[in-house]
Design a protein around this nucleic acid. Structure first.
Length: 109
DNA sequence: CTCTTGACTGAGG
DNA sequence: GCCTCAGCCAAGA
């Protein structure tokens, strides 16, 4: 299929789906991979429609490893529990050893 | 068309 | 390292 036909949102979803199990990445990393490094906010904005799709949005956090989007997972600590169930240690909405779990699509793909 | 909203980021103090 | 400010840009009203 032609990538040109894919919307910005769709591209975000595809990259998010490529995030390995037990790993996390940042909005900026995804944006950069898409060639829109300055549209990091759009990545998060796009995740609003990620529900109902196979997008592991819980593996996407901000550059500090903070689970800024947890409010979009039902309002509770669902996002954190999802990560912990994958082996990612999370403490107070923040991923521990973030650099260790960090997965950069630009480098890994 | 203009204006607002945001799951962000980098630079400066 | 933390806090604050400004820039970024797509989508929706």
């Amino acid at each position: 299929m032609k990538p040109e036909t894919l919307n910005f949102f769709d591209k975000v979803y595809e990259v998010a789906r490529l995030i390995p199990y037990g790993r996390v990445t940042s909005y900026g990393a995804i944006a950069k991979y898409l060639g829109a490094a300055r549209s990091s906010r759009m990545v998060g904005y796009a995740m609003n429609g990620s529900h109902g799709k196979d997008v592991p949005a819980h593996r996407v956090v901000n550059r500090k490893g903070l689970l800024t989007g947890k409010h979009h997972f039902g309002g509770t600590n669902i996002m954190q529990q999802l990560l912990e169930s994958e082996g990612v240690e999370v403490e107070e909405l923040q991923v521990k050893n973030f650099e260790t779990y960090f997965w950069d699509p630009v480098k890994e793909l």
